[in-house]
Design a protein around this nucleic acid. Sequence first.
DNA 1: TCTTTATATGAATAAATATTCATATGAAGT
DNA 2: ACTTCATATGAATATTTATTCATATAAAGA
Lengths: 107, 107
Amino acid sequence: MKKSLTTICYRFFTNLANPTRLAALEQLMIKPMSVSELAQILNQEQSMISHNLKPLLQCNIVTIQKKGKQRIYTANKQTLTPIFTAIENHAQNFCPTGGACLKEENP
Amino acid sequence: MKKSLTTICYRFFTNLANPTRLAALEQLMIKPMSVSELAQILNQEQSMISHNLKPLLQCNIVTIQKKGKQRIYTANKQTLTPIFTAIENHAQNFCPTGGACLKEENP
DNA sequence: TCTTTATATGAATAAATATTCATATGAAGT
DNA sequence: ACTTCATATGAATATTTATTCATATAAAGA
């Protein structure tokens, strides 16, 4: 890992380390959609969705395209698919019960 | 992405979204080492290293083995290598200057 | 057993992030 | 130009997370 990668990783992981943003990405992995559609599906305020999409956009974890008044956000699958796959593998190999990594809960 | 994966991802990314933990992992990717060795290399207090290794251990992102009084921590390369690789790729493809994703800084 | 060394833990404080609410911007139609 | 709808932004507050310092535990040797 090159020195600068730590910085990039930090921004990247910080970006993903948020339940709202992960839930939004989960939806966007299914299909591109607008802010208000996301807000409706996730049952969150529009401003919250906007606030949370902003850093994802800044890191190109999502992209945007205008469609009339709407902004359609699209997940960057090229980046996200391998990462989610890696975590799925980790979960399978190292968190067999889905919560086994919570060692404090099963000592 | 299954429903529960969002939860696992959240724990996982939260774990990695920290400069101290990333720096520790960077070292542990090079070679396994003890808490005090990490503390020395990273120029941080021992308690801080311990505190930060704890959640990594809980999620099996690192493993531990005892060696006398020392605890030798080892990075889980099986999990970490593909993730770091994916982020390296993302950085190459979407952050060409290493900071291009900071769009506010080059508008 | 006493001492030393290595590590972990707890609790207080400090710092960073998220969330909310009010409001601004901006596109499209009337 | 005015209205409506979609989205973004700012600023205050709430919440989460990190850091520090003091102390506990635990292994090993004298």
